[in-house]
Design a protein around this nucleic acid. Sequence first.
RNA 1: GCCCGGAUGGUGGAAUCGGUAGACACGAGGGACUUAAAAUCCCUUGGCCAUUGCGGCUGUGUGGGUUCAAGUCCCACUCCGGGUACCA
Length: 923
Amino acid sequence: MDYNFNEIEKRWQQYWKENKTYKVDIDNGRPKFYVLDMFPYPSGAGLHVGHPLGYIASDIFSRYKRLRGFNVLHPMGYDAYGLPAEQYAIQTGQHPEITTVKNIARYREQLDKIGFSYDWDREVRTCDPAYYKWTQWAFLKMFGSYYDMEQDKALPIENLVKHFEKCGTAGCNAYSGEEHDFTAEQWNAMSKVQKNDVLMDYRIAYRGKTMVNWCAALGTVLANDEVSEGLSIRGGYPVEQKVMNQWCLRVSAYAGRLLRDLDSLNWSDSIKETQRNWIGYSEGAEMKFPIVGSDEHLLIFTTRADTIFGVTFMVLAPESEYVDMVVTAEQKQAVDAYLAEVKHKTERERMIEKKVSGVFSGSYAVNPITGKEIPIYISDYVLAGYGTGAIMAVPAHDSRDYAFARHFGLPIIPLIEGADVSEESFDAKEGVMVNSSNDFLQLNGLQVKEAIAKTKVFIEEKQIGRVKVNYRLRDAIFSRQRYWGEPFPIYYDEDNQPQPLSESDLPLQLPEVDKFLPTETGEPPLGRAKNWTAPNGRPLELCTMPGFAGSSAYYLRYMDPHNDAALVSREANNYWRQVDLYVGGTEHATGHLIYSRFWNKFLYDLGYVCEPEPFSKLINQGMIQGRSNFVYRIKDTNTFVSLNLKKNYDVTPIHVDVNIVDNDVLDIEKFRAWRPEFATAEFILEDGKYICGWAIEKMSKSLFNVVNPDDIVKEHGADTLRLYEMFLGPVEASKPWDTKGIEGVDRFLRKLWGLFFKGDRLLVSDEKASPEALKSLHKLIKKVTGDIETFSYNTSVSAFMICVNELSSMRCTSREVLQQLVVVIAPFAPHIAEELWHALGCEGTVCDAEWPEWNDEYLKEANVNYTVMFNGRPRFNIEVPAGTDQAQVQQVALSNPAAEKWLAGNAPKKVIVVQNKIVNVVV
RNA sequence: GCCCGGAUGGUGGAAUCGGUAGACACGAGGGACUUAAAAUCCCUUGGCCAUUGCGGCUGUGUGGGUUCAAGUCCCACUCCGGGUACCA
């Protein structure tokens, strides 16, 4: 009986399915372990060989943990809402749901072939009403909550209302977008609409005018993490800044906790660092600069309070609310022209130009420490969204202020001893202060850091300002002017005020529309839906939620996926708690992984979940790159020249489908059939073969380097695919896929099979295992057990190969050895393991076996070999009984006849004995 | 610019605490079996020199350093990948 992987794999997959082998339930008698993959967006292209890398790694870990006696939760589902299905719908008219369901079926089919141990009874889809009911529910909770900074947690908004009714804003420590200051009487006198407006500034989910990333081509706003370098991540369309009334999540309220709690997570340093940068902690001071001829003042934020004596002008962001306040009649025209110019630029254009631009407002401000009057400018190098949208400019010590001052001929006052500011600014936070003392404040002679501290104390004492921490992290923009997403459980009342639906009205189902485009009046697609009204007849919100809404709490839903009374029951949450191992790509570092943490913390604050963090350990699998092949066409001909002959010709490289190339040799017939224009192609061969060139690139359809896992499974089997993906290199590294190397794994599995079977005959016997066989096996168990916890699966696969080679050359037929071998291999190659387990006549499935422990007794050597080196060069070997002490080893080494030659009559200066391995003699 | 990673044969990659660099696999070359091919098995395979045998030198991006001993630690640099960017 040969190793017939197709038959074996099909049979066992069927068996697992029928017997629900991987179904899990709460079991208080066993420790739990939760292993999660980032669920995929089911794209139309299907899976390529790179996608399952992380899934295979996590599957190995799950199966291992199960063998270790853990009750393992290992679910899978689909992130089913998203732009591509909707873009496709716009182009073809096909409903995104149909496309999505079709793509999911295809994904499932592909996943099933690889033999994962998912509990498919727990599958979730974000577009399923039974699922998004809980996305909407969480949104309602956020709408009904505010952030209390004293308790450092979210609380019901009713608490805040009660406080306002009793005390107004006095003693109120709630996080808000706008500062409010009113008494209880004032609050109680407010109209319903006014009260709503005030509360909106406190709600965790709020609707407000904010600067958004508007993508005209996609017809929607985007969150910051959906934009890179001024272009949309999806599609690469230009994005502009625009003030719009949008739903947002007050993620910024959680900035401090999101930053602090990173320390408790077992994530890679690089991804934690990325999140730290994205959150962007910066400690500084807010200072008031009075406006000349006005009672008002400018509030600015600075990290360089020490440079107050060098402030020679002020700059406002074009969108700043201060602009109207300070523009004088004479300057109005110039300012308006500038604002118009800035408005029309996309963010990308601003970034590319990087040209100094700005305009004088006509007003002056007073430096609160020097009393000097300084001009106020408006320029787009100041961002409205950070700090207060206004800055004090210190050209001598800030490169942006420097460029601006040079351009507008403004004075530059150096404040640090020895700083040369004739060519560029001196930005470093080091040196001794000069030009920085007057009757009020004396900083001269201090180090920069001392000066910052002293100034902060001074401004707080004099009430010129206060110490302030700023975060770069912005609130998440939560509206999308799109169809294919979760509808908001929000309607608009008679005063056009947004109001929450009641929980009993959830899920609010996505309505049907005739087209997936905005309405003629420019409203989002939901504007086309008939009877899109709340049960009370009022109109519903027309925007839908963004992609990250559905993916923010899906790991909780897997714990209790069919519960229609709660997102997750207390019982299920208390048992499964949090994800113990999360596997996915780094591309989610500043998106999903921030939003999920935020969402979880919010639910934690309200007492719905028991852990403050969702993912305790995170592994980022690397990308699998494609290995592209090229043919070389001689210019203006249809003749192709083989790789090593191309230097003699003027050639154009052309990507060729890697599936018609074997080991860089082109299949000429398939090439001619590939494309009509190549049907008549001629070739200049070397050694009768056409050799293609190659390059490592992104795996992509357009580069013809996509390898489909289905093809690999069909030709080599799922176990081979699994082992080979792991063998390629460390899970976390990016590495190129090259199908040719798969032969090695193929051979390994056949050798493994050959240990058990010769033809139809089972070779296994009940003979006692030889010490060599036991040593080989236990070396393997020790190695793999260590590797699994550190995800070094590539070296585990090597260890399997070595062990099987050894056992096979010693013709080991011992049942006890082979049975343990099967268990150790089972997480990696579950199908063949099941088959062999069965062949050995073992009970049940190998999934429920017990992971073997290694025994150091078997690994012990009777004698130990030392390499004797002289001055670092290996010269001869000695053998001593194990456990010989170092002094004796030295003795043996130096009394060896060969030592004389290398000592050459000299006494050794020093002798070092290391780790049962080396004796180094320094002469 | 700033912050993280990384650089080892023709290729993917091994190398716990500093301890014989190149495990394992692919590819390549040679051989056995075969009418032949496939499959399988055996040998060689970092480079240079020597080869009848032993062997010798060199070698982990570059240049220094610490050490009996450096891919591994320290300093300086080059290149590559990723993140982020008028964040005051």
